Computed example of a mutant assay.
Amino acid sequence: MTKYLINRLLISIPTLFAISIIIFAILALAPGDPMGEFALNPSLTAEVRENVRRSLGLDQPIYIRYIKWFVAFMTGDMGYSFTSRSPVGALILQRLPTTLWVVGSAYILGTILAVPLGVISALKRHSVFDVILTTLVFFGFSLPTFFTGLLFIIIFSVQLKWLPFIYNSTLQVTDWQSFTAQIQQSIMPVCVLALWQAAMLMRFVRSEVLENLHQDYVRTAYAKGLPTFAVIYRHVLRNALIPVVTLVALDIPNIFTGALVTEQVFRVPGIGALLIDSIYRNDTPVVMAITFIYAILIVVFNLIADILYGLLDPRVKYTK
Rank of each mutant, 00 (worst) to 15 (best):
L274W: 08
W162I: 10
T99W: 04
L210W: 00
Q172C: 01
L123E: 03
P34K: 07
I304Y: 13
D277K: 14
N7T: 07
A30W: 07
A181Q: 13
L96M: 15
F139A: 11
F179T: 07
D251I: 00
T319Q: 12
L237A: 06
L143G: 06
R281D: 14
A230E: 12
D59V: 08
G32T: 11
D33S: 14
L311D: 02
R238Q: 08
L91F: 07
T75E: 12
A230C: 01
P314E: 06
F266K: 05
R8P: 02
G140P: 00
Y4I: 04
E50A: 15
N282I: 15
E208A: 06
T291L: 15
V102F: 08
S86R: 10
G89W: 02
V192I: 05
P34W: 09
F229Y: 04
N254D: 13
S186Q: 09
I6W: 03
T170R: 10
M1Y: 09
A259W: 13
W69G: 08
L160H: 02
K124C: 02
I276E: 01
I64Y: 07
A194V: 03
M1H: 02
F301M: 11
I279A: 15
A305L: 13
R85I: 06
R238S: 04
G36P: 00
D33N: 15
P116I: 09
E211M: 02
Y80T: 12
V158W: 07
S81V: 12
P34A: 11
I132T: 12
G258Q: 05
M188I: 08
I155L: 14
V119F: 10
R206I: 09
F266Q: 06
L311H: 05
L160K: 10
P269N: 11
I21G: 03
V131N: 11
T99S: 10
Y294V: 05
P14R: 04
Y280N: 14
P285R: 13
T228K: 01
L143T: 14
N239Q: 04
A25P: 08
F256L: 12
T180H: 04
V88Y: 02
R238L: 03
V268E: 06
L241S: 01
V192F: 02
R238P: 01
L201A: 08
Y107E: 01
I23P: 00
F138T: 15
A240V: 03
F17Q: 04
M200C: 03
Q60D: 08
D313T: 10
L311P: 02
L9M: 09
S55Y: 11
W196M: 12
D33Y: 12
I298C: 05
L91S: 13
T135N: 13
P269K: 00
T15G: 10
Q172H: 11
L133Q: 05
W69N: 09
Y4Q: 06
M1I: 11
I290Q: 13
T15I: 07
I13D: 01
G79M: 09
A28R: 14
I112H: 06
P253K: 08
